[in-house]
């Protein structure tokens, strides 16, 4: 696979949220606003970069039987480091997200990338994969957080959109709103995927028809 294929696969086709429905806990827990979603995503990207890098570095060295505890140790170390750094330099955000940062350890999306990708691929491919999956995850968090913040509080990234008279739809801030918004987003993603697939099929058919035509013309002459 080329780097751009690796990226697009991680970002869209195998998107941790849209395609695999992994990492639901941080997704539903922190996405009460777009800003929270973004910073949770950023923390996840950092952890993914670290864990994919190290796992790719030690691939072939770690015996197969103990690879999962080894990966978890690596991931937990990076999560703790990111949490400490956030506490030190982004203290206010840490107070909001602090509860969810340690839970990145058990985000299956990260262990999944270590197991399914980084342990089998080169360091550079693993880093691209980490960026792709991480930014795909962040994109999903921001999208869901944005939808919930917009309908729940009439704002995006803390900036009021609907004006002061907007009656806050509390439900979107609460857990049921997360599930409902996620459902609609998944429906939208599936719609886009179907359109993409249909267009690809159409193009394939056109190419096929053209070749048939050229062949026919060639046979004729």
């Amino acid at each position: 696979m080329t780097k751009s294929e690796v990226f697009f696969d991680g970002f869209w086709h195998n998107n941790a949220i849209f395609a695999q429905l992994l990492g639901m806990c941080p997704l539903l827990g922190v996405t009460t606003s777009a800003g929270n979603g973004f910073w949770m995503g950023a923390a996840t990207v950092l952890v993914l970069l670290g864990s994919n890098l190290v796992v790719s570095l030690v691939r072939g060295v770690i015996p197969k039987n103990v690879r999962i505890p080894a990966y978890i140790t690596i991931i937990a170390a990076f999560v703790t480091i990111v949490g400490m750094a956030m506490n030190a330099w982004m203290h206010e955000m840490y107070l909001v997200l602090g509860l969810f940062i340690p839970l990145i350890v058990v985000n299956c999306a990260i262990l999944g990338r270590a197991e399914a990708f980084a342990s089998k691929n080169s360091i550079s491919d693993s880093l691209v994969d980490a960026l792709a999956v991480g930014s795909g995850f962040t994109f999903a968090l921001v999208l869901l957080g944005g939808v919930r913040e917009l309908f729940g509080q009439g704002a995006i990234f803390g900036i009021t959109v609907f004006g002061d008279s907007y009656p806050d739809m509390l439900m979107f801030i609460l857990p049921p709103g997360a599930f409902i918004a996620l459902g609609f987003i998944l429906a939208g993603v599936n719609l886009i995927n179907r359109k993409l697939k249909a267009r690809a099929q159409q193009q394939a058919q056109m190419v096929q028809m053209q070749t048939v035509q050229t062949e026919a013309v060639e046979a004729h002459s």
């Binding site: 103990v66 505890p69 080894a70 140790t73 170390a77 703790t80």
Partner: peptide, 19 residues
Amino acid sequence: MVLALFVVAVIAATLLGLT
């Protein structure tokens, strides 16, 4: 196996200590 886990744990602990 023991050695691999040991090395991973030592490296992780060192990184955490430094952080």
